[in-house]
Design a protein around this nucleic acid. Structure first.
Lengths: 132, 132
DNA sequence: TACATAGTGTTATATTATAACAACTAAAAA
DNA sequence: TTTTTAGTTGTTATAATATAACACTATGTA
């Protein structure tokens, strides 16, 4: 489970929005969506996003500059992330595979070097788009 | 080996610059470096970068918005990339591990879905920075 | 030659993200 | 209770990254 962090007002507004969204949200689309709640400036959004990423409540999809809520309650979420991304509909799913995360957490390069963190993005077609 | 692509003048100028650089280069730093060679606008740089990525001569490091030359002549370079990134000195190295690429190329999610492409970025400390 | 395809040069603009600074708030130490 | 501290907030401005649109040019090939 996530360690409980008491989110501040802005953090909560932004987390709730991302958490309810079926797909990743971009920072400025978040901004437009929360302006009626009093969050007026990009920096307010980015600050909340930074914090939410830091504590593992959301992840950034680097190849898309977008943010998705973490739905993976059992792993070291902020340090070991894997996603599948559909190149047609842009659906993004967090992968939780014990095998994969074990393999990557233990991966050593040819110098025997281990890493403390990774991010993996798979690209392909989701089921729906495969059938089309 | 890479299929031989006849690079155009701009593509060649930009590839040579990236290829000579020990670390990944960002688009606008590339721009500043090639202005004396007649490449004046961001779009000229981005177009060349897009093409070079497409044909696998360079890769984009997504978490850094930077570009590095491919030094991995034996794999499906544009479709299966893995890098290690030092969080202190920002040194980036392309990982070529047969085991890793085989594992990831064959990875199926829990719906049995396979993916056609992936990008993996490991973060940690490089040897030099570990010793400090 | 003529046609198609890809690349070029250019201006303008969109999108993503951070700097700097003053003010506020909550929690805990004194 | 007051004070301190660390963190967050609100704000304006600006930096950094990336694309749209359009007219033109080069190159390969039929």
């Amino acid at each position: 489970m996530h360690k409980e962090h008491n989110l501040t007002k802005n953090q909560k507004i932004i987390f709730d929005l991302i958490d309810k969204s079926p797909q990743p949200l971009k920072a400025y689309s978040i901004l437009y969506n929360v302006q009626k709640k009093g969050i007026k400036a990009p920096l307010q959004v980015y600050r909340a996003l930074d914090k939410l990423v830091e504590i593992g409540k959301i992840h950034k999809i680097e190849s898309r500059n977008a943010f998705i809520a973490c739905h993976n309650s059992s792993c070291q979420v902020a340090k070991a992330t894997a996603f599948s991304i559909c190149e047609i509909c842009e659906k993004v799913t967090e992968i939780s595979s014990a095998g994969l995360s074990k393999y990557l957490a233990n991966f050593k390069d040819k110098d025997g070097m281990k890493y403390s963190k990774y991010n993996l993005e798979f690209f392909g077609l989701c089921k729906k788009c495969t059938l089309k």
